[in-house]
Amino acid sequence: MPTHRKPEFSATRWSLILDARGGDEAVALQALEELCRRYWYPLYAYVRRQGRDPEESADLTQSFFEKLIEKEWLRSVSPEKGRFRTFLLTALGHFLSNDWNRSRRIKRGGGRTPLALDALEAEERYRLERAETVTPETLYERRWAMTVLEGAFLALESECGASGKRALFEALRPHLSGDPDAAMFADLAPPLGMTEGSLKVAAHRMRRRYGELVRAEIGRTVDDRAEAIDAELGHLQEVLRG
């Protein structure tokens, strides 16, 4: 039997999950699971922010994903194209509601091997969060935005690694968001064996590539339309500015 390759990273898209529901459900499930792995921390932060303790928060987040990855939940996703971000938060809201849990008890509801989430890592990350006077929803959205940005970083890192530009990436990484700074380029160029001018061009390209990767990452969580990406980007910009 041929060995199965793990689905390409780029194949994991919310729109593909929506499309695949009628067809190859296993693929859709796998893609959903993959997306959940990427975006579970914002949910943990949300649950935690509601005042629950670390164990309970980890437990709830984990149970939520178990439930989510069950087939019927995926099937119940409306073909109306939506955003993965809002879908997850709404679904979590229902999950946390009292009624839902009671009905689960009575019906001896189903289950599935849980998505292994690292609760300790989650809590560590959570403790690194600054104390903010924000609602759980806002915290969720901010963590979501951060997760998008982190995802793009990882993608950029692997791209650079693959094309032999790891050193360049590591040198420029801390400065991706900053304003161009002549002194910085002067310092960084010699150890990389580059001129100041070529480093500036490389930095510009890398920033542009990063921007594209952020859009691609957002594209995983919304439907295919360009407007949808723009709308989601606009929303996340609001969230981070707010």
Binding site: L128, V148, L149, P174, G178, D179, R208, V214, L233
Partner: peptide, 28 residues
Amino acid sequence: ACRRCRRPLPGGRLHGNCAACLLDLAGD
């Protein structure tokens, strides 16, 4: 704080970058 937009920089996984400014790269 971010030197560009003066928002506080988030810790951790963004390697010292400002989240809002990073996101702006995508909305160029």
